[in-house]
Design a binder for these strands. Structure first.
Lengths: 196, 196
DNA sequence: ACGGAAGCGGAATTACGCTTCCGTTTGGCG
DNA sequence: CGCCAAACGGAAGCGTAATTCCGCTTCCGT
């Protein structure tokens, strides 16, 4: 009654996918500066078609980012399955960064700043945070990371590394080095002794 | 002979300063999105005047950022004067961040990404790095920070904190917390014992 | 004072992307 | 098959912000 759920013509569905693929590539490479016309071209479609599927650039970008966030939540759940708390934390962080690597638009979305409506995206971000929060807290409780680390800190520190990715494109040597140092600063040796 | 060095009329000099002041404020608040028209208006001048002093937006932005970098180099030299190596390092880092706080355009320039010509700016950045490099190396030699820390790491980590400033505007609580954690991860207790 | 070069103001011009419109084509149900 | 709503293509329309142009005004040396 409220949802008219019209099945969508076969070619339309195919084209929608082509658009997502093209947009994924271009937004990844050029961030939100990617141009609608280029996206349509790369998808092998006309502007009209592009706009039939997404009312405007914002909607397309949101759809892309939303998809990425969704994938991220899955990855977080996978990390949660790791038995060792310290290990799980590390996997979460590495996973988070690896997922962002090479995708400028996603990096920007993770770091914030765009903050337009994003309603849908925000919801998916929250979904991720819920899982991530549990992992962080478990790690803290296990004493393998500094006792005062919060889920919010996780995001802040990870986004710092993402900033390195974003602003120092090219080889991933820079951000991996950054990650290494941050990790060294966060972890505690199995024994137990805060640096202070 | 090569430099015609015409003294510049009094009102022109005054106006140039007004432009710099206006641009400083607006670029600080809105980054490179600040509009030329608004800058001219805030300076109480017409567009023509603005463009007489700077051939284009890029040039104006470059001039602003160059000025900031210059100030930064001075601050680095001041930090170098601090006797204790560990202390000097910390002062350098805090100074770097404090200087960036609240200036979006400068933050972006520090983090990179704009990388257009910037020739002049690059030169000033190098000037800063020379001093900063000495401070970092002295701190490492004194054993107060992790032994493998390089000047490049300093910039990467500091820019990570700047990213927090940039992407989480508003209160400076976020970036100070970020700084705290990074500092804890970098410093070594007076005794001496690397964390892995 | 005066002349004219230097400087000023701001409307008009450009450039560039997003978005809209509408005539044409196509999938798929009866 | 034949119909027609759904889908497509892409040129034209718009909005925005940088940049140019040029007639008018103001310093400043003589």
């Amino acid at each position: 009654m409220t949802e008219t759920e019209r099945p969508m013509r076969a070619d339309a569905r195919r084209n929608r996918e082509r658009i997502m693929a093209a947009a994924g590539e271009l937004f990844a490479r050029q961030g939100r500066d990617a141009q609608m016309e280029e996206i349509a071209a790369r998808a092998g479609l006309g502007m009209g078609t592009l706009y039939r599927h997404f009312p405007n650039k914002e909607a397309l970008l949101t759809a892309m980012v939303g998809e990425r966030f969704h994938g991220m939540a899955d990855l977080a759940r996978a990390a949660e399955a790791v038995a060792d708390p310290g290990e799980a934390f590390e996997v979460l962080l590495r996973t988070y960064l690896e997922a962002a690597d090479g995708d400028a638009a996603f990096q920007l979305a993770l770091m914030g700043k765009d903050g337009l409506e994003w309603e849908r995206v925000q919801r998916q971000k929250a979904e991720f945070m819920e899982v991530a929060g549990r992992i962080v807290e478990r790690a803290v409780a296990s004493g393998r990371v500094r006792a005062d680390l919060t889920p919010a800190d996780f995001v802040v520190l990870a986004n710092g590394v993402i900033a390195t990715m974003y602003f120092q494109p090219g080889g991933n040597a820079d951000w991996r080095r950054h990650l290494q140092i941050v990790l060294d600063g966060i972890r505690l040796p199995p024994s137990g002794d805060a640096a202070r």
